[in-house]
Amino acid sequence: MTDSFLIQRRRFLGAGLMALAAPAIGKMGVQRRTTEELDAYIASEMRRANIPGLALGLAREGTVRFVQAYGYADIQRQRPASTDTMFHIASITKTVTATAVMQLVDDGRLKLDEPVSGYLDFPLENPHHPAVPITFRQLLMHTSSLSDANYYAIDFRQQGRDATLPLASFLKDYLVPGGRTYSAETCFSKAAPGSAWDYSNVGYALLGYLASRIGSQDMREQTRERIFAPLRMRHTSWTISGTPEPLRAIPYDDVDGALAPVEPVGFPDWSAGMLRSSIADFTRFVAASANGGIAERNRIVSARSMAQMLEIKTPPELPDWLTGQGLGWMASQLDAAAMPNHWGGDPGVFTAAYIDSASRAGVAIFTNATASAERRTAVKNIASRMLKSKAP
Rank of each mutant, 00 (worst) to 15 (best):
P177V: 01
A258G: 05
Y151I: 00
Y199D: 08
A43K: 05
A352L: 15
R224L: 08
G292Q: 12
T239H: 09
K27P: 08
T236K: 03
Q159N: 13
R109P: 03
T93W: 02
E45M: 13
S145C: 09
G62N: 06
R48P: 00
V96Q: 08
P52E: 00
A353P: 06
G179M: 07
R276Q: 14
A287G: 10
W238N: 01
A369L: 08
S278F: 11
E61K: 13
P193N: 09
N341W: 10
D162A: 07
M274Y: 06
K111R: 15
L206Y: 03
D106C: 11
T83Q: 09
N368V: 13
E245I: 14
T99N: 06
A352Y: 15
N126C: 01
H342A: 12
D84Y: 15
Y119L: 04
I300W: 09
P315S: 12
G194N: 04
A303Q: 15
L231D: 00
G242A: 13
T323M: 05
E221R: 15
P251E: 06
A336D: 14
T99A: 14
P261C: 12
S241T: 10
E296T: 04
L38E: 00
L334V: 07
A338N: 12
Q31E: 15
Y152T: 12
G53E: 07
R220E: 14
N150T: 05
Q103G: 07
H342G: 09
S212T: 10
T181D: 05
T370D: 03
V265K: 01
N341D: 06
L54N: 00
A73M: 09
T164Q: 15
S117F: 07
G194T: 01
P177Q: 02
T243F: 04
S147D: 05
G328F: 02
A15Y: 13
S183F: 11
T239K: 09
R109A: 15
E296C: 08
Y151F: 10
L38Y: 07
